[in-house]
Each structure stands twice: as structure tokens, then as C-alpha cells.
Simulated assay, not measured.
Amino acid sequence: MASSAEAADIADIAVVAGELSGDLLAGRLLSGLRRHLPDARFHGIGGPRMIAQGFESHWPIETMTVRGLFEIIPRYRELKGIQNALRDRLIAEKPAVFIGADYPGFNLGLEAQLKAAGIPTMHYIGPQIWAWRGGRIKKIVKSVSHMLVVFPFEEAIYRAAGVPVTYVGHPLAEVIPMVPDEGAARRELGLPEDANIITLMPGSRMGELKYNTAAFVGAAKLLQARDRSLRFIAPMAGDKQRDYFRQLVREAGLQDVEITLLDGQSHTAICAADAVLVASGTASLEVALFKKPMVIAYRMMRASWEIMRHMGYQPWIGLPNILAREFLVPELLQHHASPEALAEAMWRQLTDAPHRMALAQRFTDMHHSLLRNSAEEGAAAVMQVIQDGRTP
């Protein structure tokens, strides 16, 4: 690895994160790089965790968020314009390295153009080619100088394709304690320590809220009728999401369900819960790392679903189940994610004590398997790519 002294003249590192999950990944990576390159310029597109590391975002991260195959169509020209403008800027400035933080639909295309222009490119994290759209490996080979992956089984996949790769562990495994303090989380949220609490996580994107909210809150209503002692909390990613969630609840006629909405605090909300109803995605891995029973659910535009349901390579979509290679927790998708089905599945997660204990042990084992110093190991890989790019 290049030393800080050797790399002292390297001052320009470009990064793009298009969603808050990528901002989390990149923010931690930048914290590791900052220790090696205290005066480096970090810039591109990013969110609050990246900005906390002195990152300069040329566009707000909120302008990048889009979901689904058909939902992107109305915004294609806008996003393509941003990609082209950033490409031209970076080719003119020639940063020491470009790092795409997840967001593969945008970043892989940008990386291909930058790599062709002689700029080293990295991608963090690897697209889930092991789950669906495996043909993207050809594009990755053309686009990416070095891949950073967060699951140990991914290294062999990229090495076989000839893509340099480093497993850095999953940053969430470092952020989330091995033994979470449920009582402290409840005190922080002002909740009774002996309460029966369900956390609802219908998603942070507006599209996810649109399709998941009514089913999630409908399930809460049925569970509340079954056990009046249950309390429901739901972390909201921002004011827009909070307002839209309330609007959707009113439109579904479910405003009589008492739900405490939180400003962010998703980790505290998970930690405080007895069980979690969660939209598929990174949040399901967070729930597993907090060792909580869960039901994974997801709904989307029907046209998108009809295409995507035929594109998967394995029977699971939830990260905990994919890592376990079995259905550790229920997955209810699209029309199967009815309020009635969600409520029934959640009831078992709440009341089956042996199942809860077995899950906690499996999730603890999973946590250990993902635990590495991702900031330092990721920074080491970036520094090596930079050094290799400077070597004739």
C-alpha cells in the first residue's frame, strides 16, 4: 500500500452515491481515506455522511433517487444530463480515482467512460450479479478497475471474471453492536421497557412508500386488533417521506392506527423492537445485525414486478436469507404482501420463542462473518489503485 507521504500530492478523489445506503458506504470509506490523505479533495455526488467528511456534492443526492424499471423513464433525460455533465467535468479534472458507491445503473456507465479516458475506477459495492442480471459482469469488466465487495462469497465471482477485487467486510457489521441494548434504545425513544413494540419500515424512497405503506399499516391494524398492547413505531427518512406516509395512511382510511413516527433514528427503532416489518433491501440486513425477528415484504409497480420476477437466479430476495441460503425469515412479495398475510407472519415472529432464539444465534453468526475494518481495508485498496495509476 502507498504511504501517506508517497500519496501526499494526490488531492482529488471523485465519488458518486445516488442513495442514502451508498452514502453510508462511501462516508465510512472516506473516513478511512481521510486518515491517509488529510488534505484530499473529495467531490462528486453524495449525502450527509459523505459531507461530514468534507465532501463537496455538485448535485443533491435527493435528485438521484429513483426506483423500478418503469419509474425511471420520466427522469431518464434529467439523470443522463447529470451523468454527462459530471463525466465532462471529471475527464477535464482527471481525479486520481473515481469511486462509484453502489447505484450501478448510473455509476457503471459513468465508470466505463472515465476508465476509457484513463481515470482509474472503483465500484463499492459489487452489484448483485449473483442474484439477478448476471450478464452485467461484462459491463463491469469494461467499467471497473477494482471492485470492493461486502460479502465474502463475492470475491471468487469477480476473480473468475478477471476483475481485481477486495473483500472489505460490511460497514454495517461495525456500526451495529454485536449485543444491542434494547432497553437503552427504548429509553432513548421514550418507550416503556416492557412494551410490545413492532417497528414498521416500508422504505425510505417515495416509490417504496407509495406501494408498501397501505399494506404495512393495514397489517398493523390487524395486529393491534389481536393484541391491544402492541405499539408501533416507524422511522421516516425525512419530512417529505413523513408527509407522504401520513397522506397515504389517510387515503387508505387507516388513520385510526396509532403509529409513532420518528425523525430518522432507524437503528434505534430497530433496536427497540420486538419484531420488524421491513421492506426488502439493506434495511433487512440491518434488522438481522440487530438480531431481531422480521418479515420481509415488498410491493412495486405491476409492470416492473412482471419483468423483475422472472430475472432472479435464486429463491430469496432478502439479504439475511441470501446469506443464510435458506428462508430464515418470511418473504412476502407483491400481491402476497397483503395486510392479512403480513399480520399473520408477524404474529409468529412475535410469539414463537424458540424461533426467536434460533434466529438470534443465526444472526450473531452472520454478524461475525461480515465483521472487518471496512474503512481501513477499503482505504488500503483505494490507495493501492491510486499508486498503481501513478506508476508508469
Results as ranks from 00 to 15, higher is better:
Ala358Pro: 13
Ala358His: 15
Ala358Arg: 15
Leu359Met: 10
Ala360Lys: 09
Ala360Ser: 10
Ala360Arg: 14
Ala360Cys: 12
Gln361Cys: 06
Gln361Met: 04
Gln361Gly: 11
Gln361Arg: 12
Gln361Phe: 01
Arg362Asn: 08
Arg362His: 14
Arg362Ala: 14
Arg362Ile: 08
Arg362Cys: 14
Phe363Cys: 01
Phe363Pro: 04
Phe363Leu: 00
Phe363Glu: 04
Thr364Cys: 07
Thr364Val: 07
Thr364Gly: 12
Thr364Trp: 08
Thr364Ser: 13
Thr364Phe: 12
Asp365Gln: 11
Asp365Gly: 08
Met366Ile: 13
Met366Asp: 12
Met366Gly: 09
Met366Phe: 07
Met366Glu: 10
His367Phe: 01
His367Thr: 00
His367Glu: 00
His367Gly: 06
His367Ile: 05
His367Arg: 02
His367Met: 02
His368Pro: 09
His368Ser: 14
Ser369Trp: 02
Ser369Thr: 15
Ser369Gly: 07
Ser369Lys: 05
Ser369Cys: 05
Ser369Ile: 08
Leu370Met: 03
Leu370Thr: 11
Leu370Val: 11
Leu371Phe: 09
Arg372Glu: 03
Arg372Tyr: 04
Arg372Gly: 02
Arg372Val: 00
Asn373Met: 12
Asn373Leu: 11
Asn373Gly: 06
Asn373Val: 11
Ser374Phe: 13
Ser374Asp: 13
Ser374Glu: 10
Ala375Ile: 13
Ala375Tyr: 13
Ala375Ser: 15
Glu376Ala: 15
Glu376Val: 15
Glu376Ser: 15
Glu376Asp: 15
Glu377Cys: 06
Glu377Asn: 04
Gly378Thr: 03
Gly378His: 02
Ala379Arg: 02
Ala379Trp: 12
Ala379Lys: 06
Ala379Val: 11
Ala379Glu: 08
Ala380Tyr: 06
Ala380Trp: 04
Ala380Ile: 10
Ala380Gly: 09
Ala380Phe: 07
Ala381Glu: 06
Val382Pro: 09
Val382Thr: 12
Val382Leu: 06
Met383His: 02
Met383Leu: 10
Met383Phe: 02
Gln384Arg: 11
Gln384Leu: 07
Gln384Val: 00
Gln384Thr: 09
Val385Pro: 03
Val385Gly: 10
Val385Ile: 07
Ile386Ser: 01
Ile386Arg: 01
Ile386Met: 02
Gln387Val: 01
Gln387Lys: 09
Gln387Tyr: 02
Asp388Val: 05
Asp388Gly: 01
Asp388Thr: 04
Gly389Val: 03
Gly389Trp: 07
Gly389Glu: 00
Arg390Asp: 00
Arg390Val: 01
Thr391His: 15
Thr391Phe: 11
